[in-house]
Design a protein around this nucleic acid. Structure first.
Length: 275
DNA sequence: CTGAAGACCTGCCTGC
DNA sequence: TGCAGGCAGGTCTTCA
């Protein structure tokens, strides 16, 4: 399901809906997803203080009864969804974990393909974890800028699109927004990163930031099964310029949008606008 | 070391 | 209608 904008939208929705809730029970319907589940029982009795995000990880900050904060970290994989429902409502299809709150509400995690994963950390152990340490800069933070990305491009020996999608380069740029940002910047997805001029790298950085920001503002993309926490779809898909538009006319120049496979992923581009 | 390909899963759509 | 094949937003592991 999610790239960074979708995760951001889910976080905002969750923060509004479960902040302050007290966890009464955690029920798992299997042993794990991508990895075995952590010991969720540590969270029983904890109150949810805040929901935020780092990269595509959802960070659910809890305060334990005995005092001391605790961090529930969740990655949605491809098809993970959180829903807040009344406790009494029956488990839906592919529901794997349920957090019951004292208020009678409950947080459900569904994930058809089961690529999602979760961990329980202390604040300090999260910052030292392999998951955290693998992450590059946030695309919407000041640490992601043209000088930084240009230096990285120069060192790289790969095409620009796979580089953009590597988490150590910049987090949160997935397959959709990589294609969309490259179109906006007029850069061909197969262009070798080291052969892009500084001014074009600068345009690409700006395009990534604008594309992600606009998607967040629109509530995330509504392709396939993305839904917000309240079940409403996102609306950004209506704005795609190239993604999923193979053989359709380019919105800028009317040339046919092309699809190709690049490092195992579909890439969409306009052969006329992107060089 | 780097970078590409394979693997993990299920569901859905297309075409025969 | 049924079924095989291809495809799907991520990322970790394996291989060259």
């Amino acid at each position: 399901m999610p790239e960074l904008p979708e995760v951001e939208v889910v976080c905002r929705g969750l923060d509004a809906l479960i902040r302050g809730e007290k966890i009464e029970a955690v029920i798992t319907f299997r042993d794990g997803l991508r990895y075995p589940f952590p010991d969720f029982s540590a969270l029983v009795g904890a109150s949810i203080e805040q929901v935020s995000r780092r990269s595509k990880y959802i960070l659910i900050r809890c305060v334990l009864e005995e005092g001391g904060p605790c961090l529930l970290v969740w990655h949605l994989g491809m098809t993970g969804q959180f829903h807040v429902l009344p406790m009494a409502e029956e488990a839906g299809k592919h529901e794997h974990v349920r957090f019951d709150f004292k208020s009678g509400k409950s947080l459900r995690y569904r994930d058809a393909r089961r690529f999602g994963y979760a961990g329980v950390f202390s604040e300090a152990s999260w910052l030292q974890s392999d998951w955290y340490l693998a992450l590059g800069p946030e695309p919407l933070s000041p640490s992601f800028h043209a000088d930084y990305f240009y230096a990285l491009c120069k060192k790289s020996n790969t095409a620009i699109k796979p580089l953009m999608m590597q988490a150590h380069a910049v987090v949160g740029v997935g397959n959709i927004y990589a294609s969309e940002s490259l179109f906006q910047a007029g850069v061909h997805p197969k262009r070798m990163a080291k052969r892009i001029a500084y001014r074009r790298v600068k345009a690409l950085v700006l395009a990534i930031q604008q594309t992600l920001s606009r998607a967040i503002d629109a509530g995330g993309s509504s392709i396939s099964d993305f839904v917000q926490v309240d079940g409403k779809p996102g609306y950004f898909a209506h704005d795609f310029y190239v993604y999923g538009r193979e053989a359709a006319p380019c919105r800028r120049c009317s040339a046919q949008i092309k699809r190709m496979v690049q490092t195992g992923r579909s890439t969409f581009y306009c052969p006329q606008c992107q060089r």
